[in-house]
Every structure is written in structure tokens, then in C-alpha cells.
Design a protein around this nucleic acid. Structure first.
Lengths: 229, 229
DNA sequence: GAAAAAACATGACATTTATCAGTTCTTGTT
DNA sequence: AACAAGAACTGATAAATGTCATGTTTTTTC
């Protein structure tokens, strides 16, 4: 028997905690658990979503394809986050693709179980609203960063972000390993440019690498760089 | 006596339409109307907002100052839109400044009148949520545009956006006149670069200008440019 | 564990964009 | 109507970034 939402700790980190016992029971009864392998999509841009995904394990990149064929990664969603709510709430096809960055385990919650609660339980709706307000603020920050900071600054910032949000492994490497291409898609630059700057950081002793893994050596200097010094 | 929210048509365009009669009465009793002159701020980045602003007349730019001293305009809010909700909902200081692009008339609604309704009326909360979902999608689009399109494409897009959202006056000029600096702050580039490209568009017959006013002459070609042809 | 594929890396060069330093045009004020 | 102040504009140049071509590692697959 699969675990019940009522007992799931993941829930503590997302809006589902504002649900009543009965509402949660309904969610738990209708949810299905899925395993997604690294590189596979949860859904693709333009899909009509019939529910939301609650991340139990792993990380998903949310990205949008641009006209010139490059992906822009807009957000990295990890354990405890709910994906696809924007699309379900606005009743639109999704504007983003969600692809697993590493092996994932997610719960799919059909939208019926959510929509009813949204209409009846203002605490839950408000909780979802607060999350979205937060996402919107972050999106505004990304806009300013991309348009006003250099690629070098944005890459430095991305490394610090990865450390703060995903931590480091026991060897001191960033726990979330992204390909150079993914890194360039996060900061919005050409893959070669990202690689070049990573090499430069390495030479300057700000980071060190082993294969695709990256470790932060001089957090202070990276910070200064982000601030423009 | 000032006009009552209950009778205000502006309300048809924003979340306030989901309020009950009594809720709306309370809003109307506590609201104050303000006139803001062109160039003056409604509020500045970092301010603690004690309520939201409902735009009755005029346009406000929502912008964020970057480390290098340039403003990035994140959104233009016009008649019918509510400003400051994100900040009130998240209970944070605002991350954006709101400055009048032309003379404005706004209603200030104290947050107490909103917060209570957010906690009790799920229809209203859901309506606000839908609006924020929409804003978030637009923000995602802006991120992709800024990082993947050239300045030329973004300026072309900005002109089409201005035409579609604010229309044209009787002489065919864009109804919302922005300074060259504001235009550059919308697309995220240096003012000189924006001016140069505007001159180029003029030479190519895509637009024509009179003082700071701009008229679109060849919408088709501007569209093609945005798409990358 | 060898072969193939994918990802990483670097150089040379083209293009885009920013910066600085002026000049000219508008606009609002007296 | 003259003036001052602020925008708008232009040119020259520097800096940042993208592109293409090509070689080298890593990773995956059989």
C-alpha cells in the first residue's frame, strides 16, 4: 500500500498543509505516484494539464523554448514543491515544459481534487496565492538580473543559488549537478560562453571541478562579483 | 461626495468584482482617492505598503533598480489594474517602485479591507490568484524574451505591445508616449542603443515619429522582426 | 573494456551592445 | 519670443557575447 498524503512530510513545505483532513483524504485517494527518469518530461510546453505534480524526490527544470531553438530555464523545482498549479488555476495550457534533471518521484494530483478546495477553502487558496506571490517576486528578480547583469555575474549568482538551495555533497561539490548546457539555459547565454566563464572561474580559484561536478572554493569572491566588484 | 466602488466600472476589470456587496461597501468606505502627477511615485522599492492601489486613470510603470543604477521596468499598469497586491499578500516590503508615466487618478484601499476578504471569500481569493497566475506567465515570457531575443526584436515587440494594450490616438501615434529612456528600461538596454534602433526603424519605414511620439507604419514587418525573419 | 556518443573545452572571429563625448532638437518657463 | 533644461540623437570606440570549427574528455552502451 502506497503512503498517504495525510502522513507525508513533504506536504509541510507546500500549500497542501492548509487543507482540511477530509480534503486531504480526497487528494490522497485520487493521487497516483510516478517515477520519472532523468531527462524524461513530466509534461511539455503546450500540454493541457489535468492536475498538479507534487515533488517527493529529485529536481525538475521548468523551461520554455524560444524561437531560436534554445531553452530558457525559468525555475528549478525540488522536493516539496508543487508543479503545474499556475496552469491549472488559469485553466490554460501550460507555458512551460517540466523535465527531470535527475531521477524523480512525484505524486500526480488530479485537478478535480484541487479545484474544489480552491473554491471552498479560502485558507488553502490564500496559501497557494502566497506561494505564487513569492514565485512572481522571484521572476521579477530574474528579469532584472538577466537584463542588468553580465553573464559572468549571473553564472556566479547561479552557483551561489545552487549551493544555498540544494547544498553540497560530502566532497564539497554542489549537490545538484547540472550540465553546462543547463547552466547556460539558466543564465540565458550560449553554452560556449558559460563553459568559458567556468574555466575562467577555475583559473582564478573561485571554484574547482571534477567532470561536470562543480565545487565552490571562494564564496566571498563570487559574492563580490555578483555585486559588481 | 466621491463616487462609490459599488458603481465603479473600473472594478469590472479587476478582482474586486468577486467581492460581495457588504465587502465592497467596506472597501468603498475606507478607500481614498489620490491624484498623482506624471513622474511622481505611488510608492518606492522597499516601502511597506498599507494597502493596494486601483488605477482609475493614467498609467504607472513598475520598476526595480539594479545594482548598476538602471531601472528595469517590469510591468506597465493601466486603468482597471490593481497595484501592490503581491506585496500585501506576501506581507513583505514591495520589491518594485511604482511611478506615474502620465497624470494618474488612483484609489488607495487599506489592506485591512482586503485581507479580511482574502481570508473569508474564496471566490475573491481565487480571482486574485488567477490574476497573479496571469502576471506570472507574462513574467516568464519576459524572461525568455530578454534572454533570447536581440534588442532590435525586443523594441519591435515593445511597440506592438504598446499598440495592442494602449491603442493609438486619432493621428495614429501610440496612445501611450514613453520617453526613450523608459523604452530602454522596458526592453532592458542602454538608452543610446534604443535611440539608435528607433532611428534605424524610422529609416526603414517601419515607424515614424514626431518629437517623442511614435507611430507604427508597418506592423507586418515589425511582427516578422519579432519572429526572427 | 572497447567503441560510440555525448558533453566539455578552446581558439578565431563576427556581431551585438555598451560607453563616452559631443551636438541638436523639444519643451516648458518667464 | 528668448532662454534654459532636459531629451533626443550621432559618431567613435571598447567591451561583451555569440558563432563556427575543431579537438579533447567523459559517459554510455553493447
Amino acid at each position: 500500500m502506497e503512503s498517504r498524503c495525510e502522513n507525508c512530510i513533504i506536504r509541510q513545505f507546500n500549500s497542501l498543509r492548509a487543507m482540511s483532513k477530509e480534503e486531504l483524504k480526497k487528494v490522497s485517494d485520487t493521487k497516483t505516484t510516478k517515477k520519472i527518469k532523468k531527462g524524461e518530461p513530466l509534461f511539455e510546453e503546450g500540454d493541457k494539464l489535468n492536475g498538479v505534480y507534487c515533488v517527493r524526490e529529485g529536481v525538475s527544470k521548468l523551461s520554455k523554448l524560444s524561437a531560436n531553438g534554445k531553452d530558457q530555464i525559468v525555475k528549478l523545482a525540488t522536493k516539496g514543491e508543487v508543479i503545474g498549479q499556475r496552469s491549472v488555476i488559469a485553466e490554460e495550457c501550460t507555458n512551460l515544459s517540466a523535465i527531470a534533471v535527475n531521477d524523480m518521484e512525484v505524486c500526480f494530483i488530479p485537478k478535480e481534487s484541487i479545484v474544489h478546495t480552491l473554491q471552498k477553502n479560502p485558507n488553502f487558496t490564500l496559501e497557494v496565492l502566497r506561494h505564487m506571490a513569492h514565485d512572481l517576486k522571484e521572476a521579477d528578480d530574474v528579469i532584472v538580473n538577466i537584463s542588468q547583469k553580465t553573464v559572468k555575474q549571473r553564472i556566479a549568482e547561479a552557483f551561489l543559488y545552487l549551493k544555498n538551495n540544494f547544498g553540497e555533497d560530502d566532497e564539497g561539490f554542489l549537490a545538484l549537478t547540472l550540465s553546462r548546457e543547463d547552466i547556460s539555459n539558466v543564465v540565458g547565454t550560449a553554452t560556449e560562453s558559460a563553459i568559458r566563464i567556468i574555466s575562467e572561474f577555475k583559473k582564478k580559484g573561485l571554484i574547482h571541478t571534477s567532470g561536470k561536478r562543480i565545487a565552490i572554493k571562494d564564496e566571498r569572491k563570487l559574492n563580490d562579483m555578483v555585486e559588481g566588484f
